[in-house]
């Protein structure tokens, strides 16, 4: 038990420790954020086409169902969700596999798995273009498999510039699964193996151990990875720019084409504000979950 005085002192100490971060966020994030919000209602002149006068036209156009922006938002959300699930799931599966099989992450593997983290985004996007297009290795393989051997279809589906976003999903999953793996594997290493042994002696099977022992323990990490992957893919630009379709457009590409090429910065900033609102909503959910994770862990 701590006395109120110690508790107050502690709280003050905590504030002091958070202060550098708060100061940094306050200057480097809050300022551009305020500028972005003001720009989305036309009230700055930071970019060409912004007049400095208040207008809600950007939001009216963004939420106009006849315009492509809402469809772009929905498409972006769907594709991002699928990619997050695949990349996080893959990372988790691999980390658990290595844990159960007691495979030591040797130097080579530990080195290999980090490669996607250091591939320049644009190069990655372009490499997947040449892998997935009909004359690329994956393109040829898909054709041979679906058309020639299984004879399921007459023509293999387009893997790039396709309306389902297959190219984006494949490339995004490749880029993000190491993040999931690295964090979850690291957290699993911190768990005492005696937990698993105890569960096993009590007769628990692998599935139950995963659900009852590991998932609660790495819950926070998993959530955090999923959030990071979701947000990183949500605003990704290079991948959808190279691999995306003409319809539906990825929101970041929509912003780029509208703002940079056509000079419609009102639309650009409106979409940015929509992005940020979604991020804040997710962050709130995340902070709540964190509090819960802290009490459960």
């Amino acid at each position: 038990m701590t006395s109120p005085r110690t508790s107050r002192r502690r709280q003050f100490g905590d504030l002091l420790m958070v202060a550098p971060l708060a100061l940094f966020l306050g200057t480097m994030v809050l300022v551009p954020l305020v500028i972005a919000v003001l720009s989305s209602v036309g009230m700055t002149t930071v970019a060409p086409g912004l007049t400095g006068e208040f207008t809600l036209q950007g939001f009216r156009e963004f939420f106009d169902p006849t315009k492509p922006s809402l469809a772009a938002l929905w498409f972006t959300f769907k594709v991002t969700l699928v990619t997050t699930a695949i990349s996080t799931g893959l990372g988790l599966a691999l980390a658990l596999f290595m844990r159960f099989r007691r495979i030591a992450l040797g130097q080579v593997m530990s080195f290999l798995v980090k490669i996607p983290l250091f591939m320049p985004y644009l190069v990655t996007a372009f490499v997947f273009w040449v892998l997935l297009y009909p004359k690329g290795y994956i393109g040829i393989l898909t054709h041979k498999l679906l058309v020639e051997y299984l004879a399921l279809v007459e023509q293999a589906p387009a893997l790039i510039s396709d309306p389902l976003g297959i190219g984006i999903i494949v490339c995004g999953s490749w880029m993000r699964f190491p993040y999931a793996f690295v964090i979850i594997h690291g957290l699993l290493q911190m768990i005492d193996p005696s937990y698993e042994e105890a569960a096993r002696t009590l007769g628990a099977r692998t599935g139950r151990i995963v659900r009852r022992v590991y998932l609660p323990l790495v819950g926070y990490g998993l959530l955090s990875v999923a959030l990071l992957n979701f947000l990183a893919l949500f605003i990704a630009f290079s991948i959808p720019f190279v691999l995306g379709a003409s319809w539906p457009q990825f929101l970041s590409v929509f912003i780029y084409v509208n703002a940079k090429d056509q000079g419609n910065w009102l639309a650009g900033y409106t979409a940015s504000v929509v992005y940020i609102v979604i991020a804040l909503a997710i962050a709130t959910f995340y902070t709540r979950a964190l509090q819960r994770a802290k009490t459960h862990a």
Binding site: Y133, I160, S161, D162, P163, F241, V242, G244, A245, S246
Partner: peptide
């Protein structure tokens, strides 16, 4: 491939 449009001059060229 009706309905898919290459994303850029170079994509068409390739």
């Amino acid at each position: 491939r009706p309905g898919t449009y290459p994303q850029g001059n170079n994509a068409v060229a390739q």
